[in-house]
């Protein structure tokens, strides 16, 4: 009986929602990534979500992809973050506090930060931001990232479990410099909420261009205290296969380390 139940559970299809709007760009590759990990994925336009507010709660994973939502006019991600916050508000907070996985990549990270879902969804107030790169220009390159581990191989963030100490992913952004007040930054550090930091190939501190934006504490990605809400500037959905890596490195001969990130969220729910 128990075994059968486990099997049924294992076969449960995880439902992922990708929120999109005018200017969303990375939704197809993100969909492919989740599908490769066994999920069913819907790309849903924000207008549709606004017209049926509870729809979002029927999903297991929420993903906000990269791009230039509404052209990043005003500030990157600002308009969509307001739409989500004020037109779907409670439901998104509910989603986050229920412990379901949420990921925001690049513009998606900017959106999560600007609506205040990161780094502290309990408060749902913006307390940090992603500002212009120190180089003052758009930067597209592969970078090394240090996977922050709380103690002995266990990450706080459910998305980054069992990753190597250093992985590489591509970045492509003009506004990726993570900025917050010292007190907030200290809190984030103390709670082990930093998930990825820009580093050199050995995991040591680095400088431009390997640190592409000059983020405080070289922060490339953060999560909430529970570890289910994750935002990052680099693009794991562009490194699903080894073939996508500049020198074709990966694991199991075929896959890229980005895949592991999505697999973690799906496995966590199974």
């Amino acid at each position: 009986m128990a075994k059968n139940f486990a099997m049924v559970n294992k076969m449960k299809k995880i439902k992922v929602i990708i929120i999109r709007t005018a200017g969303t760009n990375c939704d197809y590759e993100l969909k492919s990534a989740f599908e490769l990990c066994g999920a069913t994925v819907d790309r849903v336009h924000i207008n549709e979500l606004i017209s049926s507010k509870n729809k979002i709660l029927s999903y297991d994973v929420l993903a906000v992809p990269g791009g230039f939502s509404y052209g990043d006019d005003i500030a990157s991600g600002k308009i969509l973050s307001n739409e989500i916050k004020y037109k779907l508000g409670d439901n998104v907070k509910k989603f986050a506090l229920s412990g379901k996985p949420i990921i925001g990549i690049c513009n998606g990270f900017q959106i999560l930060v600007k609506m205040g879902l990161l780094p502290k969804p309990e408060n749902f107030e913006q307390i940090s931001t992603l500002s212009y790169n120190d180089s003052n220009k758009f930067e597209c390159r592969w970078v090394h990232l240090k996977t922050e581990k709380k103690n002995n191989d266990r990450t706080l963030c459910l998305w980054t479990r069992d990753l190597p100490d250093v992985i590489s992913l591509p970045v492509a952004h003009g506004e990726g410099k993570f900025v917050a007040d010292k007190k907030i930054l200290d809190d984030i550090e103390k709670n082990n909420q930093v998930v990825f930091r820009y580093c050199d190939k050995n995991g040591k501190d680095t400088v431009y261009p390997q640190d592409p934006n000059g983020s405080l504490n070289a922060i490339a990605g953060v999560c909430n205290k529970k570890g289910n809400v994750f935002g990052l500037m680099p693009h794991p959905e562009r490194y699903i296969y080894a073939l996508q890596h500049p020198s074709r490195e990966g694991y199991d001969g075929v896959y890229g380390w980005g895949k592991k990130i999505f697999q973690n969220a799906i496995d966590y729910l199974k």
Partner: peptide, 24 residues
């Protein structure tokens, strides 16, 4: 010029405009 363009979006660029033995 090349690095100001997102040459990786859509995730399908398997031979890139700049190539090297490592990412640096």
């Amino acid at each position: 010029i090349i690095r100001q363009y997102d040459h990786e979006v859509q995730g399908q660029t398997v031979v890139k405009p700049l190539q090297g033995s490592s990412i640096t």
